[in-house]
Structures are given as C-alpha cells and as structure tokens.
Amino acid sequence: MKLLDRARLGLYVQRYDFWLDVADVRRRRRRALRHELRANLHDAAHDVGAAVAVANLGSPRTLARETVGEAAGRPARPHWTAGGQWAVATFVVLLLLWTLSLLAFLDGVQATGATGTVTGSVFPWGGTVEARVGRGLQVSASVPVTVWVLTLVAFVVGSRAWVLLTRRGEHLTPVG
C-alpha cells in the first residue's frame, strides 16, 4: 500500500477516534474500535482502493455516533473539574516561570549597574516590569495578561468546553 494511502486511512481512523473520545468512549474501548476499523479499512482498501474505502465509511463523526448509538447522539459533557485542575496547574507553573524571569531581569539590571528607571518585559511577556534603581531597588510589575490567557486556554482544553457546541448537533436514528 502506498504511503499516501496509509496516511489517508490513518487520518480517518484518528478522526474517528477523536469523535469517539468526544462521545466519552473509554480509552480501551476506543482502541478496540480503532483496531477493528483499521482491519476493515485495510481489506477494503486492498479491494477498492483507499479513497473509495474511506468514502464508503462516510463522515467519521457520523460513524462514531452510530457506533456508540444513542450515547453518541448525546454529546459528551464538559469536564469542568478537570478544566479547573488544568487551569490551576498552568497558572502556578506560569507564575513560577514569571517570578524566575523577573528575578533574572532584576539581576541583569543590577549587573549592568544602571541607575534610574529601567523598564522591560519578561517571560511569558504581555506585561511590563519597572525597576527603579537608586539607593535601593524598587520594583513594580503586574502579572502579564498572557498568564491569564494561557490559564483560560488550559481551562477550555482541559474541560473540553467545546463539546457544549456539539449539543446543538442533529440526532440520527441508527439503522439496524
């Protein structure tokens, strides 16, 4: 089988697996369904070609929905708790990195022997740091907006909040 055909079949199986995951199918069950589909696709591709074999299966989303039956017709629920955990972990890690880069910035300011007000931006960027060097060292900084944005992204990804959008999807009656 050509590399392109293998890629086409592999991509279809991965898309199928994605929709099984969205439908809350457990990992072990998904693996079994993937293996079965891969074996069938392999035989069909040898018979009629990879493109036709994939076309005969239709949309991977519909296939996943019909495979799991009614449960797949009901979109999966978001995992808010998991999302919260991901958000907290991301926030803590980013805050730690921001603090470390802030300290590195201040070390740099002191190492150059600069006086007066020095401003700059530190990882993960998106905010400014101001250091006033005189008799002592005064620092003013606020948590960069990037930290909040990445925390929000972690929450959305971790909770799979997008499955709320699939709740508006149509319900299909399985045949058979």
């Binding site: 079965e36 069938n40 045949v175």
Partner: peptide
C-alpha cells in the same frame, strides 16, 4: 455502505 454495517 460500510459506514452503516460496522456500527450495526
């Protein structure tokens, strides 16, 4: 279609 038979 295969997409009908496999889920069944």
């Amino acid at each position: 279609a295969e997409g009908t038979v496999y889920p069944a």
